[in-house]
Amino acid sequence: MSAITIGYARCSTDKQDLAAQRAALERLGVPPERIYTDHGLTGTNRARPGLDQALAAVRAGDTLVVPKLDRLARSVPDARAIADELVARGVKLALGSSVYDPADPLGKMFFNILATFAEFEADLIRLRTREGMAIARARGKLRGKQPKLSEKQQRELRRMHDTGEYSISDLAELFSVSRPTVYRTLAR
């Protein structure tokens, strides 16, 4: 049985597109039907069904191809765990057009350096996000998720509920909200 290439692509948000990563994988020789993807899942989330499928599809002698290491993992421990699993199974790892042998000392060092940079980049993004949110909060621009109902609607919902004539389902239908929203409004 001959070795095959399996591709994996991931984007963090639903607004991002996987087309560029898919095209890169196809240019690297991965057949389109062998590309597994995760859409809207961060690299720090280890529960990634597409990655699990890609890892299940590779066999000894095969190559797992990822456009960039940060698409595979965003932390050194996660990257190491995936690389160690691949080595144990006799699977090669290609990051872009470069094939890395994590079993080789030089390949292992280079892989760990790349994983460290990917983790550093993820940490910087989190730091910048927190800083931006703190600044927006201080300026009054970030107030969190807004209630589904205005203050006036909330008062009316409460008044109607207190009459005893309306069930939670009735109120949800009348105000075009879910039942949990009615319960949250009444609990406030």
Rank of each mutant, 00 (worst) to 15 (best):
M1W: 07
M1Y: 10
M1G: 13
A3F: 11
A3I: 03
T5D: 09
I6V: 09
C11W: 04
S12E: 09
D14T: 15
D14G: 08
D14E: 15
K15N: 08
D17M: 09
L18N: 02
A19N: 10
Q21A: 05
Q21R: 04
R22L: 04
A24Q: 05
A24F: 01
A24L: 02
A24W: 01
E26Y: 05
E26W: 08
R27I: 06
R27W: 05
V30R: 02
Y36R: 01
T37P: 07
D38V: 10
D38C: 10
H39L: 12
H39P: 06
G40L: 10
L41P: 04
G43A: 03
T44P: 08
T44E: 12
N45R: 09
A47R: 14
P49N: 12
P49G: 08
Q53M: 09
Q53K: 15
L55T: 03
A56F: 10
A56V: 12
R59M: 08
G61V: 03
D62M: 00
T63N: 00
T63W: 00
L64E: 04
L69T: 07
L69K: 07
D70P: 09
D70S: 13
D70G: 11
D70R: 07
A73D: 00
A73E: 02
R74G: 03
V76W: 03
D78A: 11
A79R: 00
A79Y: 01
A79P: 03
R80D: 10
R80V: 13
A81Y: 02
A83V: 03
L86M: 06
A88Y: 06
A88T: 06
G90I: 07
G90D: 06
V91D: 06
L93R: 07
L93K: 11
L93A: 09
L93N: 05
S97P: 04
S98P: 08
V99M: 02
V99L: 04
Y100G: 00
A103T: 02
P105R: 04
N112M: 08
L114N: 05
L114Y: 06
T116R: 01
E119R: 04
E121H: 02
D123W: 11
R126L: 08
R126E: 12
L127Y: 08
L127Q: 12
R128P: 08
T129G: 02
R130P: 03
R137L: 09
G140F: 05
G140Q: 03
L142Y: 14
R143Q: 14
G144C: 08
K145M: 15
Q146N: 14
K148T: 15
K148E: 15
K148I: 15
L149P: 15
L149I: 13
E151H: 11
Q154G: 13
Q154D: 11
H161T: 13
T163R: 06
Y166D: 04
S167N: 10
A172G: 14
F175G: 10
F175Y: 13
S176Q: 14
S176L: 13
V177G: 11
V177W: 14
P180N: 14
V182G: 15
R184S: 15
R184V: 12
T185E: 11
A187N: 11
